[in-house]
Amino acid sequence: MTGYSPDYHVETPANLAEALEKLAAEPGKWRPLAGGTDLMVLFDAGMLRDRHLLNIARLRELRGIEASAHEVRIGALATYTEIKRDELLAHELPMLGRAARESGAIAIQNRGTIGGNIVNASPAADTPPALLAYGAQVELVSLRGSRTVDYAEFHSGYKTMDLAPDELLLRVRIPRDPRLDGALHDYRKVGTRRAQAISKVALAAVGRVDSGRVTLCRLGMASVAPVPARMRNVEGEIVDNALSDEVIDRAVAAVDADISPIDDVRSTRGYRLQVSKNLVRSFLLRLREHGDDRR
């Protein structure tokens, strides 16, 4: 079964204001279409239910990666290729480039966008764990104005999120936390093969130790819960503590409270739970070794 193109209306707004007017005038009618690397797959399979698509791929207002003194702003339409090539991101937020490089092949990376990766809301998506680890926020815009939400609070359940029908994801905002400089950035994706595989489990973790105690520790995981998972219980066992064997054991045990993996076509609950614990332990052992010894 392939998609039947006469069934699908496509409008291409000239600018952001026009796009927002369209979304506000007919809430819920128009589904934004950006790089097409998710929606066109559904279309090709004859499974794209939204019959009205708002082609936002060229909206200038949603493009680009820029930085102020305090934050990095990644436009919703920034592609994986743009993200993996950005020098500032590579230097300050390296797990984003790693995750972008893990997202499909070159042809997908050239089209797929970070905004699409977020609102497609797959729990297996590659960039969300890194966004969680870096404490990202998402800026949402509508004719009513704009608002900024912690990304860790954005996804409310499987494929549901804090996004109104008249809102567009404008950009991702990531604080330029000086503690990230010299921190350990650990991104690990576990799939069936090294390339071109959707993850069974993925971890993005950032940590820092000063004077023997952990001063920064945030972890995000993919494919282990209905939403990209921020590992708050694990973090709670670690922050402000020295990384003794006992602390690490308690943190690994806390993985149970942070995730709820399932059996599906790619893996099993039991495997995912064990590998999640292994990845968290591996990160914490590396962090202990990393220690105060930076640069």
Partner: peptide, 20 residues
């Protein structure tokens, strides 16, 4: 695979409206 504006893409995932 084809190139659009010099970049590799999968043409099965590109709608006509986006090559204008």
């Amino acid at each position: 695979s084809v190139l659009i504006d010099g970049r590799l893409v999968n043409s099965c995932l590109v709608p006509l409206a986006q090559v204008e």
